[in-house]
C-alpha cells in the first residue's frame, strides 16, 4: 500500500513538474515547443541513473523516485507526438535535433547518473 502511494505521489509531482517546465520554456525562451519535453526527459534520465546507481533499493528510491517521479517527469507519448508533427511538416533539421538530443543526450545522462549515484550513494560510500 505504501508502495502504491509513493508511486502515485511521485507521479503527481513528476507530471506537474513537467507541465511547469513546459510553461517556463514557452515563457522564457523562443526555442521550439518540443524543447520543453526534451528538457524534462533529460533531467529525468539523469535522475533515474542516480537512483539506479545508488545502493539504496528501498521504496522511496524505487517506487517514489524511479517509477513515480522520474517515470512521470519524463514522457514518451508527448515526444512521439512532437516527432510526428515534425515529420509531417517536413521539419527535418528540427526532427534531427529532437531525436538526436533525446537519444544522444538521454542515454548518456542515464550512464552518467548511474556513475555518480555509485560514487555518491553506492555501497562503498
Amino acid at each position: 500500500m505504501l508502495e502504491l502511494g509513493l508511486v502515485a505521489f511521485g507521479g503527481a509531482l513528476g507530471a506537474a513538474l513537467r507541465y511547469v517546465i513546459g510553461l517556463l520554456q514557452v515563457r522564457l525562451s523562443d526555442w521550439p515547443g518540443w524543447t520543453g519535453v526534451l528538457i524534462a526527459n533529460l533531467i529525468g534520465s539523469l535522475l533515474i541513473g542516480l537512483a539506479a546507481g545508488s545502493a539504496d533499493g528501498g521504496p522511496w528510491t524505487h517506487a517514489f523516485l524511479m517509477v513515480g517521479l522520474c517515470g512521470a517527469l519524463t514522457t514518451f507519448s508527448a515526444l512521439a507526438l512532437d516527432l510526428t508533427v515534425l515529420i509531417w511538416i517536413g521539419a527535418w533539421r528540427q526532427l534531427g535535433w529532437c531525436l538526436g538530443l533525446s537519444l544522444a543526450g538521454g542515454i548518456p545522462l542515464v550512464v552518467l547518473g548511474q556513475a555518480l549515484g555509485q560514487i555518491w550513494f553506492g555501497a562503498a560510500a
Binding site: G11, G14, A15, R18, Y19, G22, N41, G44, S45, L47, I48, G49, A52, M66, V67, C70, G71, A72, L73, T74, T75, F76, S77, A78, L79, S102, G106, I107, L109, V110, V111, Q114
Partner: peptide, 24 residues
C-alpha cells in the same frame, strides 16, 4: 488536456525507464 494528455498519458508513458532499460 492537463488531466488526460499531459497528466495521465504523459505520466503513463516514460522516457527515463526506456533509457535505463537500454543502458541495462
Amino acid at each position: 488536456s492537463g488531466l488526460l494528455l499531459t497528466g495521465l498519458l504523459g505520466g503513463l508513458t516514460t522516457f527515463s525507464s526506456f533509457g535505463l532499460d537500454v543502458v541495462t
